[in-house]
Design a protein around this nucleic acid. Structure first.
Lengths: 132, 132
DNA sequence: ATAAAAATAGTAATCATTATCAAATAGGAA
DNA sequence: TTCCTATTTGATAATGATTACTATTTTTAT
């Protein structure tokens, strides 16, 4: 992964924003510093950087994906109306319901533990060397 | 919400399937019983039924939405490669990491508590009566 | 049986994202 | 420094999932 001014500035601006922007929201911000940048470049770099673990891709909002420059483990709440995402501050506790300390003013409707992984079939494919 | 044979059969077939199908996967199954059904009807009914709480819409897989006929609270794991979703059996425990009993053969990469709700702005809009 | 409201099939439109490709650039080798 | 080549970029086309539209059909209450 080479260092380009585009990638550098995309990462820099993403880290500044605390509101989990979509690719096109970030594009508008970056455009102010790099007026000739392409939306495809923003998409491409966000994808690459999230694959590299530099940033986090938030895919659970339904429509547009959102991106998070903060990579430390933390939880989110997302609005079923507008798709907006906010951080949730939690505290240790036995039940998932009890650990919310601050839901950023959201009215909490539901919670669910989301596990991510690789399914048995894809693990097999990976071992056979047919993956990506 | 009126009772139509389309809606009835969509729900029936969704409840039969345990693999969290996408709209088009379910469409193919339903088509066997109702050959003239439209894909738009499947989408429309899945949306309505999930809004009514009869079924559950799973939006966190990135690409296609998936649907779950089982509405009791339970957690899922999804494959970052193919998007497939499976149920995760959990047991009571203090930390999120410790509660996994069976991840359906998945290699677990990450977990996160996903909260759903309505954000302050949308709550205000709702109170002003401007929402749908 | 009838009428109004709601749902359907078929298809067009939309919207986010990805693919394509010629031109530009980064970064190492000479 | 200059040159080479793989990578990246910008611009735009293509894709794919979902939603919107509309004329027609169906449900259901009266």
């Amino acid at each position: 992964m080479r260092m380009t001014s585009q990638r550098e500035i995309i990462l820099e601006e993403l880290k500044k924003l605390k509101n989990h922007p979509t690719a096109d929201e970030l594009y508008l911000v970056v455009k102010k510093r790099l007026p000739r940048i392409s939306l495809a470049t923003v998409y491409r770099n966000l994808e690459q950087m999230s694959e590299a673990g530099i940033i986090k891709k938030l895919e659970y909002s339904g429509r547009q994906k959102r991106f998070d420059g903060a990579t430390h483990p933390h939880n989110h709440i997302h609005c079923i109306r507008c798709g907006r995402i906010a951080d949730v501050k939690t505290r240790p506790g036995n039940s998932v319901h009890s650990i919310i300390k601050d839901a950023a003013g959201f009215q909490v409707i539901d919670d669910q533990i989301e596990f991510t992984g690789i399914c048995p079939d894809c693990l097999t494919t990976e071992n056979m060397g047919n993956s990506h």
